[in-house]
């Protein structure tokens, strides 16, 4: 935090805001915990001599034992629970971050075009959003997952297809007010095409709003993915995801709660961290909005 005290160096608005974010202890702690979990999910499984899909029929339903190789025991196929949870996290986190990114990009482009071009195009484009908004969200995801034929890619497409709406609406409102500003007028007078203006002026200026709402998208995507996998519509066995691990854990919870608790704790921790980070970003990016 020492560098923040040097007034001489000019800093961009964005770096000032990230500086403010760094002051938020809860948000920074969440970043650390989240980074740890991400690293554990992507690198952790390599530390073990087996994968989450290797069934060891000599070691079925082992309990928690930190001295053995199966730290958190095994499930009823003798698959290691910790490794399965970590591998499931890989799937959930990848879908979460990638889904939020893609949905964010689509939403920003759509919203920027609708808001900047305006007129009849805008009315049609916003109507499409309104109609899609009226669908019960999860039902739309389920319908689309069925349309795309099931599987991870279908799940991903369905989630992205439903989640680009909110960023689009927010960016549209911003683009509308930006379109009336003088520097856009100047750019137009200077001979820039609409497309150039959108890419070089509109989109970068909506960035700070997009970062805030984008950070809220990530937990939403992870939640949808695990929700659908929990219901058996998303990621399927034998591939693990936090959703279907929780579903599997629920079957044995009355005798052995361990299978439920480990993936549930991981999912809840990640969602907590992402929510705190989103809160921190919002506070840092628009301090008036409290």
């Amino acid at each position: 935090m020492i560098e923040a005290d040097l007034p001489a160096r000019p800093r961009s608005e964005l770096s000032l805001r990230f500086g403010r974010f760094r002051q938020n202890r809860l948000a920074m702690a969440s970043v650390v915990v989240l980074t740890f979990i991400v690293v554990a999910c992507f690198l952790g499984p390599f530390l073990f001599p087996f994968t989450g899909q290797d069934a060891d029929f000599d070691a079925i339903n082992l309990g928690v034992d930190f001295t053995s190789i199966h730290l958190f025991g095994t499930d009823d196929f003798g698959r290691d629970l910790l490794v399965r949870t970590l591998e499931g996290g890989r799937v959930s986190l990848t879908i979460g971050f990638l889904g939020a990114l893609v949905a964010g990009i689509i939403g920003v482009m759509y919203g920027a075009v609708a808001g900047f071009v305006g007129g009849r195009w805008d009315r049609v484009m916003i109507r499409v959003i309104e109609i899609l908004y009226a669908f019960p969200y999860v039902i739309l995801v389920i319908l689309l997952a069925m349309l795309f034929g099931g599987g991870n890619v279908a799940l991903f497409l369905a989630i992205v297809f439903t989640l680009w709406l909110t960023p689009a609406v927010i960016v549209r409102a911003q683009a509308q007010s930006l379109a009336r500003r003088e520097f856009i007028e100047a750019a137009r007078a200077g001979g820039m095409t609409r497309r150039q203006i959108i890419v070089t002026h509109i989109v970068p200026n909506t960035l700070s709003t997009v970062i805030v709402y984008g950070s809220l998208l990530v937990p939403e995507v992870i939640l949808s993915e695990s929700f659908l996998s929990f219901l058996g519509i998303g990621v399927r066995e034998p591939q693990a995801s936090w959703g279907n691990l929780i579903q599997a854990g629920r079957a044995t919870m009355s005798t052995d709660i361990r299978l439920l608790l480990l993936p549930a704790t991981m999912l809840a921790t990640v969602l907590f961290c992402l929510n705190f980070i989103a809160d921190g970003l919002r506070d840092a990016f628009d301090p008036n909005d409290r």
Binding site: S254, A268, F272, N275
Partner: peptide, 22 residues
């Protein structure tokens, strides 16, 4: 509120089942 927003319902409900029912 933070707990209710962050922990999904399909995690809470089974835990409630274990504690209050089982």
């Amino acid at each position: 509120a933070v707990i209710g927003i962050a922990i999904p319902i399909f995690v809470l409900a089974p835990l409630m089942q274990v504690y209050f029912a089982v």
